[in-house]
Write a protein that binds this DNA or RNA. Structure first.
Lengths: 191, 191, 191, 191
DNA sequence: GATGAATGAGTCTTCATTCAT
DNA sequence: GATGAATGAAGACTCATTCAT
């Protein structure tokens, strides 16, 4: 029955990859990652067949963590505004609290190493947000715009907001709130 | 200085770099770029001392082109809304018309290879936009928010919009307009 | 010694090694062999201490099979020509019927991984052939040449013949006979 | 015009490859070859794109040298027997004088790394031998057998003979002559 | 200045072998 | 004994940069 593959080691590698990639970019050597994870160079490849595999797994892992952060305690019963605010706040705070993961996420997305499968897997956890947006449109609170457009808007503003909160932690609340108000103003029907 | 450096060659290299980096990522080999530019491998290094230098120069070059696209014919005399719409439209259209340059710009920004100098140089051409925003705040059309925050908001929404226009060219106008309206609604004071 | 080593497993590994080495060369990974044999990677090493050990064992195994094919039903009582023809035919047919084993044999011999011990062991089963040759020389049917030279001649011609039979199975008989006649003509005293 | 590729370096690499492969097998590291050739590791790859390319080039190079050795001073006007003896002797002596090249040739042929192109190129220099054999058959000196079969016979016997000459240099002449007589007896029509 | 051969450190990945389970 | 995860030394090949021509 040999030694079973260790979840701990897998996680250590993913964590190390996050650190190393965040600091040196995706071009960082796999050997740096295995070293940071405290495993042998070869071990990395028993958990992830190739560097690209590692990248894809890391992407999913981070996305999953993000989804969890955003959707836990989701106030299903509250108003559209409250629900959107919940998601917004959680997203921004996650990005501020996990700058490395956030940075790596961006790099992976822009690098073009993701499989279609991973892209889909990364999207999956966010269906509930879409559902919320859909119902909001239906009740005419939010303008009639394509859902992906709305989602992308939120994301774009949230990412931007994170940057400001990171740079000016003292004004965190200001930026967090201002960002949200801009989003809300942009999305809702006028008057 | 027998033969002077050729502006043509420099441009050929920058253009080739845009193509190659856009297609293969910043990890692409300099030899691929020199080949695409039709010059020898060594020649690239007489125009740019290192690969990082090339990256920085490319960044500035693209930013300059972008600034030019945005600010030419700038309607200094018109309303804040008109001026903002001008900038918005130009930005979005530039991104749609120059997907490779846009893609490379993003990669460079996210990769962390930029010198402070380059970052500043990249910002410079956009001072006029800032000025516009400043005056708009002063006259209380736009909310009293930090200028960089406003600029970043515009950028974030514009980049997102580009993506949609690229994917749905037939609805270009819809996305372009919707994006702008969201920006405007977000920035202006609520009555 | 709770569980005794299984002869089956050993054989499975040797058979798998024949297949894998024949197809991918001696550089093939031991893990490919264990996989093909349906055993764990580590198991291979309980049956053969090192890859070189496996190679040597495989060599002997194949040689043994070959000797068996050649010497079974050996017509001890018949004429020199009949006995030589028997050996010739059996050798050629074995090579045609076992192309992988034959191929691996050649690779091992040419690769220089054999111990002296294995070389000797590989020769052993062929003593009877030598004996036959010796007596043939004594009775002056065959020219007075060093025995190993005679053996090598037969082998060289037989291996060559195998190749032709493999490539032109329809002319198998022609090549088999022609080859033998050449051998016989070459070995016997000219009148 | 930069430094031109040096024929010397190319030859040094090929010579080093012959040595190293002969001693350690085709699995030998390219770094061992570049070191033996006195060039940097990378340099090997500017002359041969891959290890397989090197193998193929080496094969052609050796075959060319062999053909040259065999066919120079070819006695076109003499009898079939003399011409065959010429080729035979040259071949055997080449193999004895160039044991490393000969060994490497065998390894490459058995390893299955040759392109069809290389195989053809390796055959080309030997057309004259075929022509000779053809005419010999026509004049009914040699038995009517497929040409490739005849060629292969000569080769098989010659290679075997080389081995004996190498092991017993003092009896070189004996083996050389005996081998040839066997070949001649085998090929010619009886009576 | 232009060229491209030369360099060798660095990359990802493989693999024989060991050893915890 | 069987298993397969762990190991780390190689290995083939790449690439930014230098420099002879």
């Amino acid at each position: 029955m040999a030694r079973p593959r260790s979840e701990d080691k897998r996680n250590a590698i993913l964590a190390a990859a996050t650190d190393v990639f965040a600091e040196r970019g995706l071009g960082a050597a796999t050997s740096a990652i295995s070293a940071a994870a405290g495993v042998a160079e070869g071990t990395l490849f028993t958990y992830f067949r190739t560097k690209d595999d590692l990248l894809n797994a890391l992407y999913r892992e981070i996305k999953l963590g993000l989804a969890d952060a955003m959707m836990s305690d989701f106030p299903r019963k509250k108003s559209v505004r409250d629900r959107l605010a919940h998601v917004w706040t959680r997203y921004v705070r996650w990005g501020v609290a996990n700058p490395k993961a956030h940075r790596v996420l961006q790099q992976i997305e822009v690098a073009g190493a993701l499989t279609e499968e991973s892209k889909l897997a990364g999207l999956a956890p966010f269906v509930e947000i879409q559902a919320m947006a859909e119902s909001a449109i239906a009740q005419r609170t939010v303008q009639d715009l394509p859902l992906p457009f709305i989602a992308a808007t939120m994301r774009a503003l949230a990412e931007m907001t994170m940057g400001f909160v990171r740079q000016h932690p003292d004004d965190a609340e200001l930026y967090e709130r201002s960002g949200f108000e801009m989003l809300w103003a942009g999305l809702t029907r006028k008057r």
